[in-house]
Design a protein around this nucleic acid. Sequence first.
DNA 1: GAGTTTGAAACT
DNA 2: CAGTTTCAAACTC
Length: 616
Amino acid sequence: MDTPQKSVTQIGTPVSKLKVEDSPVFNYICSLSPIKTLKSIPITQTLSSLNFTSPPSVFTSPHAVSHKESRFRSQKDGSVSKEVASIGEEGNEEALVENSEPAQSHKNDCNTPRVSNDVRDNGCCEDGGKDLQKMLDNVKKKSETPDWETLIAATTELIYGSPRESEAFSCLLKRTSNSEVMPTSKPVSNTDVGNNESESVDALSILHRGVRRRCLDFEIPGNNQQTMGESSSSCVVPSIGLHLNAIAISSKDKDVANEYSFSGNTKVGLQSSTAPLLQSPHDIVRENETGKDAGQIIEEVPKSSALVELTPISPKKKRRKSEQSGEGGSSCKRCNCKKSKCLKLYCECFAAGVYCIEPCSCIDCFNKPIHEDVVLATRKQIESRNPLAFAPKVIRNSDSIIEVGEDASKTPASARHKRGCNCKKSNCLKKYCECYQGGVGCSINCRCEGCKNAFGRKDGSLFEQDEENETSGKSGTMKTQQNVELFNPAAQPSTPMPIRQPLAQLPISSNNRLLPPQSHFHHGAIGSSSSGIYNIRKPDMSLMSHSRIETITEDIDDMSENLIHSPIANINSLSPNSKRVSLPHLDSSESSPWRRNGGRNLIRSFPTFPSLTPHH
DNA sequence: GAGTTTGAAACT
DNA sequence: CAGTTTCAAACTC
């Protein structure tokens, strides 16, 4: 285990590394960052080596960034990482293309070192192989390690091009500069950050960093001031994506999610962010299961190879555990794809923008860091077909928060399924229904038949409970609708707060993945975080944060959604000064089903991979 | 644990 | 754009 990550990081690292140090970007960052670069921190091996490195891949393609983030998940096996590294250095595509050996399907090959095999499999795959090869070719073109400036330029484009996840990329950028260029920086930054606790650094700090980072990327013009802190922080926060993933995943387990997100103590610093990354959400979950809190995890990561610790139990076992753990236990549900190679939206992991990891029971999985190029290419392809394919399906409106008299924090604002469901037999009462799964009511957008969605019916009635009261009065419904109309002229029936209560009571299975935080994050998130955001941002930040944003186009709305899901975004908006931001009600979800629910929809909300295509 | 049902995603 | 097929999750037994 000495170097699993290390190897990973090495992917393409050598060249980039050298360049990085000399690169203007690096210098710039250094100048910005108050944090002094420490040289030689032994720890390097652990985290730094981890996944942060490999600037090349990162810069190679924006996607790479995402990969890295997600990468954490999968890098448990050193051999794998080695493979990856070798591939990265030598060129994946070639391997992929060349291979024609019979495909070997291995389950959970996440750990299997046989990258080549996988690749080959891919190549052999009937039709899929062709596509993959094409994608690979494309990727290959891109993957040639560019020089930094070029990369940067490209990066910028990418950033702006992909609204949603550009942050991740930028993050990588910074991260790269810090972590890779300055290996020590990670720990250091971490430490530094921790020191700054006086500044109210807590788990949130991570988020802040993310925000800051974003700011750096996008706000440079306006907010240079935040610079140092921000820059550093931004650098520090290596992977928003990870956080998101982690959160998203962890969110599946409400307890876990909570712990992860917020339990983190002040110590949570750079590392914290990294820790998750390294460990991968699942790992995090595990950690939590063991009783460690986020902070602990973070701290430990650097010291001991997180990877090692994380090492696992048998995949199946885990899966079972997660699946069966249901309510009580943390559930880190993974995919079980058999034919899609985890390269289609069928795959929860892929759809969520994260790599498959050990807990997955997938077969012939290509959604692994090893195949990052393929993954990116595929993602891109899908996005080209449907730019919003990876966008969260459930849109929540911040507006309702206010409306809801109760606990705004707990109550997800009005929400709706973006496209609406198409249920015919489930009556929108089972998780087959995306709306139901997402914990939102059906809307006019839904084409469902016999809708009885407990979160809100297509026709406007809210709950089944309401049904009971239907006769007496549709006050609840009325409220809801009022809210909807009020806030959403478009008038899609959304699930208002009232739902909240019911939700808690709803028989949502433990598997629910709803992310309660969404709503929380949502608040004000729009402004900064969303990738598209920068676009929006200039126009009117205040506006963005304003609840009535909905008036803005759907697209924006969607983007906001994405943002919403991003804790970082939220933080950002909330605390421009980057001072302590009270995480709104993150914990609120504890009791609410939202918390635990991580349904596909939600998961998708936290795309790890930087979006390849600009969302509008 | 295996088989069935379901509806989204993908394909034509 | 509509219809069909494929797919994997959700569900049932």
